[in-house]
Write a protein that binds this DNA or RNA. Structure first.
Lengths: 160, 160
DNA sequence: TATTGTTATACTCTATAACTATA
DNA sequence: TATAGTTATAGAGTATAACAATA
């Protein structure tokens, strides 16, 4: 993906990876997510899943494991395992839901909230740096274009 | 990532995953790449790495393992292992470079080229379907915006 | 019977580095 | 010494499904 954005598309049964949207998207995601992972992984020793749980609980009073899975695009086992590690690290608290004891109420501990408050400004700064490549208007455009493409990709997933 | 593209950005030390660019990018990539992976994985039993090697060799007469790694954004061990599996499946050919015998010359076998010719129209059709969410002009915009963001993300990676 | 969440299992993928052969 | 490519190893992550507790 080296600056060939204005190149023509693939033609006639030939596929150039550098002009193939899924490949370009993948390399972009790798670069961006690694830039963020360096923070939560390197400095805070959190996995991607654990970071997402922290982030999710950081602006919700409490959530069940199921809600967490839906909100963070993780599988329920990933959530379950991230939870058990985060509990062991005393970053989150877990208690039963009084009304329906199948549910758990998960929330950040004081220590977890402290970690959240340290990480968030750092990752937001990185996001801001990366997006500083674009004007405010371009950022808005990018988000809208990505949303449209996302909806189409979901259609495709449903039909297999 | 449910249609919140026009929502305001994160503020004041709070981070909403659904408004966080790296997260949105990641979910988009997952949806898109899964749509493509269903093809090469499900119908042709190829891994992501193997598919990239096939795609790379499909429009290059021959490449060395090093060239493949650079072109396909894979690590040299990933390339090496994908090569060994593809050789075993008789999809690619490998011979020594006459001038410098440290290099290998890799190319598609007839069978490999046949697989390439079958897969490419299918994945291009999926790409086209996904991108049909956008006008031609919007597609062009999206690629350009992604390229700009990519360059910034690489800057960040370099500095850690 | 259906649902929430946990656990078991096997499998794959990854990262690091040692290693061979060639230059 | 440096480079291309392979192999070894251990650790991390993944998918599938069985399982317990609750409703």
């Amino acid at each position: 993906m080296s600056g060939s954005s204005t190149a023509p598309k693939n033609h006639e049964g030939q596929l150039d990876l550098n002009r193939f949207f899924p490949y370009r998207l993948s390399t972009l995601d790798m670069a961006v997510s690694q830039a963020v992972a360096q923070l939560y992984s390197g400095r805070f020793n959190l996995s991607r899943q654990e970071w997402r749980i922290i982030a999710a609980l950081g602006n919700h009073e409490s959530m069940s494991a199921k809600e967490l899975a839906a909100y963070s695009s993780l599988e329920k086992m990933q959530v379950s395992r991230a939870i058990s590690r985060l509990k062991e690290a005393d970053l989150i608290l877990q208690q039963e839901d009084r009304d329906d004891r199948r549910y758990t109420r998960l929330s950040l501990s004081d220590q977890g909230r402290s970690v959240y408050r340290k990480i968030v400004p750092l990752v937001l700064a990185r996001e801001e740096f990366i997006l500083s490549a674009l004007s405010e208007q371009e950022q808005e455009q990018l988000m809208q274009l990505m949303d449209k493409v996302y909806q189409k990709a979901l259609e495709l997933q449903k039909w297999g």
